[in-house]
Design a protein around this nucleic acid. Structure first.
Length: 481
RNA sequence: GCUCCGAUGGUGUAGCACGGCCAAGCAUUCCGGCCUUUCGAGCCGAUGACUCGGGUUCAAAUCCCGGUCGGAGCACCA
């Protein structure tokens, strides 16, 4: 190779995006996804699901789906089913499912043990007062009570002696910690709202920081990937690991991603469904996994996109452009081509001979054959009215795969074939085409006609010069250009 | 305000732990051209970035200090 150095410099390095290796992997990994069951998953959630899934697939091990339902006020019972369905569609391989509300006794036992060790204490103070003490780094008097006293009060807590807000279980951390919220955080609180799964059986619920730490340890998590919104929680949870002498997992936090022009907020969606604004969780105006699936996105696109995004801690903007491009690459091979005419206008053609159209079903795959229609002499076609209005008198255009025409007042004049390469090419459909409505993610609907050969077709097709559309019955859902 | 985190072209990322092979790679978009009877696919070309200021060093995107900007947290939510 010394003789041909210039050849070497031309070599292109093919770069594929891969996730970085995890630290301290000893054999297999145990990872988890921990959504709260407030609704189905949306595109933002798919990141944590896929990142975790990718690593478990790489190293082998377990991927736990842990549903965090320790706050009865924020639960949609349907989510218990919708979340696993969304994950399944995304190709995420959950090996174990855990529901926190069914583990209450486990949390109580750990709490009792920690009370005996003097790590937890029972607070009988108002939230505001406690908050104020923490701000000033002043210990509450209960902090120094004996384990016996605390255990007694813990039993009272369980038995319903206290009502909401009167008492709570507190985790001792470090009152000198620079971040007040890390100082002595609340581990259990009373909530008397009925739980969708357990009803009124429990009134003392662990807070997320307690149940998460307990479960991450008990389930043997080795590596945890989650958003930077949990950075402070990680710090809080490490106190619990250290206090119990548990092995601390490796933590990774990825940055926030803002997803433009997309409706994701569960509360907003729920309200919209209730008021009739949205047809359901899969309304294509939404950013839920269900809606994206309905539009025709492929699960592999999500995977590719999130692998490409990596795990940086810096915030970023989601790029529909790149996402769509990745999806296009996946669907194009199987997307048959058809003509769609939006806002059709019947335009007369003054041809004297019968015309035959000849359009490829897929220009890259001639073996699939052609779409052919016959246009009788002095007949008409449907043409997009928007395009028609843009034409000037005597403009020549090509009706795609049919013939050249010239605009003459309200009609098209048939023109003989020539080799003019610069002609504008516009699609059309024959008169026996079917009506179709195409729903778009921005909430608008395009009414039009789709060529006869597309009738009954389902799945993603490409409507030439219009975009990719997921067809179903007499409607279509717009995917992307 | 306090605590913590981050900053590479329009967008997304690679590189940064071990400074030199980075006058910065890849993808996407935009712009030009070729091909094509799609605004799809393919091909070619072009534009475009290390937040700023200091310091260390023969050498800094990479290390140190400071500023600016952005974000998160500051709940008996998750």
């Amino acid at each position: 190779m010394e003789e041909f150095p210039e050849i070497m410099t031309r070599e292109k390095k093919e770069e594929k995006h891969e996730l970085p290796e995890l630290e301290n992997v000893e054999g297999k990994v145990v990872m988890r996804m921990a959504p709260s069951p407030s609704g189905p998953l949306h595109i933002g959630h798919s990141r944590m699901a896929i990142l975790n899934d990718e690593y478990v697939k790489r190293y082998g091990g377990e991927l736990i789906l842990r549903i965090e339902d320790t706050n009865p006020n924020n639960i949609d019972p349907d989510a218990y089913d919708m979340i696993p369905q969304d994950l399944n569609w995304l190709g995420v391989n959950v090996t174990k499912k855990v529901i926190q509300s069914s583990r209450m006794d486990i949390y109580y036992n750990i709490a009792r043990d920690m009370i005996r060790k003097g790590i937890l204490y029972i607070l009988e103070k108002d939230q505001a007062i406690f908050h104020d003490l923490k701000l000033k780094s002043i210990p509450a008097e209960e902090r120094s009570y004996t384990p016996e006293t605390n255990e007694e009060k813990f039993d009272k807590l369980l038995s319903g002696y206290y009502s909401e807000g009167e008492a709570a279980v507190v985790m001792k951390t470090d009152l000198a910690h620079p971040n007040p919220s890390v100082r002595d955080w609340i581990a259990f609180r009373i909530n008397t709202a009925p739980h969708p799964l357990t009803g009124n059986k429990y009134i003392l619920y662990p807070t997320m920081n307690f149940s998460v730490s307990a479960d991450d340890h008990l389930l043997g998590l080795t590596h945890i990937i989650r958003g930077i919104d949990h950075l402070v929680n990680t710090e809080k949870q490490k106190y619990m690991f250290r206090a119990n002498n548990w092995k601390i997992p490796e933590y990774y936090h990825y940055g926030f991603i803002s997803i433009p022009d997309t409706i994701l907020k569960t509360t907003v969606i729920k309200q919209g469904i209730k008021s009739g604004k949205y047809s359901g969780w899969d309304d294509i105006r939404l950013g839920t996994i269900m809606a994206l699936k309905k539009r025709g996105y492929r699960p592999e696109t999500f995977r590719k996109y999130w692998i490409n995004s990596g795990m940086r801690e810096s915030n970023a903007t989601f790029s529909w452009e790149i996402f769509n491009s990745m999806n296009r690459e996946l669907i194009d091979y199987d997307a048959k081509r058809f003509f769609f005419v939006k806002d059709p206008r019947e335009v007369k053609l003054n041809n004297t001979n019968k015309l035959k159209s000849h359009a490829a079903i897929h220009p890259g795959r001639p073996e699939l054959g052609y779409r052919e229609y016959e246009i009788n002499p002095k007949s008409s076609i449907y043409f997009p009215s928007g395009e028609f209005e843009k034409l000037k008198e005597n403009d020549r255009i090509r009706l795609k795969d049919l013939c050249i025409v010239l605009k003459n007042e309200k009609e098209f004049k048939y023109m003989p074939e020539d080799n003019d390469k610069k002609l504008k090419i516009i699609q059309w459909v024959p008169l026996n085409s079917n009506d179709i409505k195409i729903y778009k993610p921005d909430g608008t609907v395009d009414d039009g006609k789709i060529e006869p050969l597309a009738s009954g077709k389902k799945g993603v097709v490409q409507l030439e010069r219009y975009g990719y559309v997921n067809l179903s019955e007499h409607m279509g859902f717009y995917l992307h250009r």
